[in-house]
Design a protein around this nucleic acid. Structure first.
Lengths: 246, 246
DNA sequence: TAGTGGTCTAGACCACATT
DNA sequence: ATGTGGTCTAGACCACTAC
């Protein structure tokens, strides 16, 4: 068994378990450890790395949760995947596309203060008729329309959400910059036929299938801050995720 | 602040942190703690419960991961949701429907040993032409067809997968009964139009939209055991999940 | 029997938010 | 200044697996 070298800086603001899990993940993606390999035992690793067993254990657990490692009592810890698959994240479509190198842009079609109807009020814990900002954007990727995105945002978190910012940045990116912290998302993914109007906007034939996503986002106080109702051209977009049994 | 009573049995095979997190979750769903309430501090809770702080902390963390609680350093731990939303799980559609009280059944349309084509071989880490079991089922819920489900399963885990068992049980349920432990799923959710044949099977109009799910399942050794390619009547099925920022 | 991961304890120090 | 959660240690005992 090769020694897994590890550079640990206890003075760093980055927690030790995170330093370790990142370097361990790098070792796996580099190929120092390949699928099927066993790690040394937790006790040995903690010794080699010069940290306590609970800290080593926590670092390993991070990679178990990502689906890279599997632990079996009485047996050991084994590498089962070399790379992290994309899991469902709290990122926006904009971030996803940018990460994939697609240079996304947005056309802001509507951006105005509105009043909450019954559905919006229910989703955002408001009263019917309360003010909300409504936003409709057409997301463009690789020069082609990809999605129609409608959002309702509570006024308290709207100050940075300008049309100019939305053209070049994702909504959550803008919110985070205004000290708003999206934390918990409740989403529903479905499919339906496009209407004639939607098809025209997305430059697809009328009745072509859409992948739909409805998402209510809560911040770190449990306050519902945003409702999104999005429709994607199903021939160009799908949702990937990795689920690890808990 | 009311005292959160807790019945802990240290001799139970159920870990203490799990006993605590379940009872705490019950207290929240009962309404003993409502949205916005703060929990006592970790140190106080550990004292009240008669357990160590790391153990109390782990119990709380379970509910944070489920999106029921939010913790803020220097502030405290707050209830943000009363109920656990359905999260993406390693359960089958059968389990989902049964839990919802829909009495699902299956019609096994095809069930035979086949040879892996290029796509199946790639997904399951096999060579082209290797034997795989192919399975096609029509899932019925509330007397109506809901989904067309096609699976390819590696022969090593097939012994319990009989047509009779499949009519009344979910695939993963059968696999688990044969000491196979599904652990990691890589899934892609999309949408497309139905073909005439699919529409006839699902009793929908031809061209109506389908919600599609493709899933590769690995067991606890990292071995790819099963590929599923499923098509759901989009008017009757959608995927719900809760995502908590990590 | 030996070795593994799973759980648990009783402390400690720190960063952060509030008062 | 106080109290919160975040991190970390150095042990301990246990359940499980493999030999």
């Amino acid at each position: 068994m090769t020694i897994l070298t590890m550079e640990i800086n206890p003075a760093s603001p980055v927690p030790i378990y995170h330093q370790v899990s990142e370097q361990l993940q790098d070792a796996i993606s580099r190929g120092d450890l390949v699928k099927g390999d066993f790690l040394p035992s937790e006790v040995l690793l903690a010794e080699q790395w010069g940290i306590s067993r609970p800290t080593a254990r926590r670092a390993i657990q991070d990679l178990v949760d990502k689906g890279l490692l599997v632990r079996k009592r009485g047996v050991g810890t084994q590498v089962v995947n070399a790379r992290v698959q994309r899991s469902v994240r709290l990122s926006s479509l904009f971030d996803d596309l940018a990460a994939a190198g697609s240079k996304p842009t947005s056309v802001v079609q509507h951006w105005a203060l509105d009043t909450a109807n019954s559905e919006v009020a229910t989703a955002l814990d408001l009263t019917v008729g309360a003010p909300v900002m409504q936003l409709r954007r057409l997301r463009i990727a690789d020069m082609l329309p990809l999605a129609i995105m409608v959002n309702w945002i509570i006024p308290e978190v709207c100050q940075g959400v300008t049309a100019a910012a939305l053209q070049e940045h994702g909504l959550y990116e803008i919110l985070r910059a205004s000290r708003v912290r999206p934390r918990i998302a409740h989403q529903v993914i479905g499919a339906r036929m496009s209407t004639a109007e939607e098809a025209a906007m997305l430059k697809i034939s009328s009745g072509a299938p859409l992948l739909t996503m409805r998402r209510v986002m809560q911040d770190d106080s449990g306050r519902s801050i945003e409702l999104g109702s999005h429709a994607y051209n199903a021939t160009r977009y799908s949702v990937e995720m990795t689920v690890v049994d808990s």
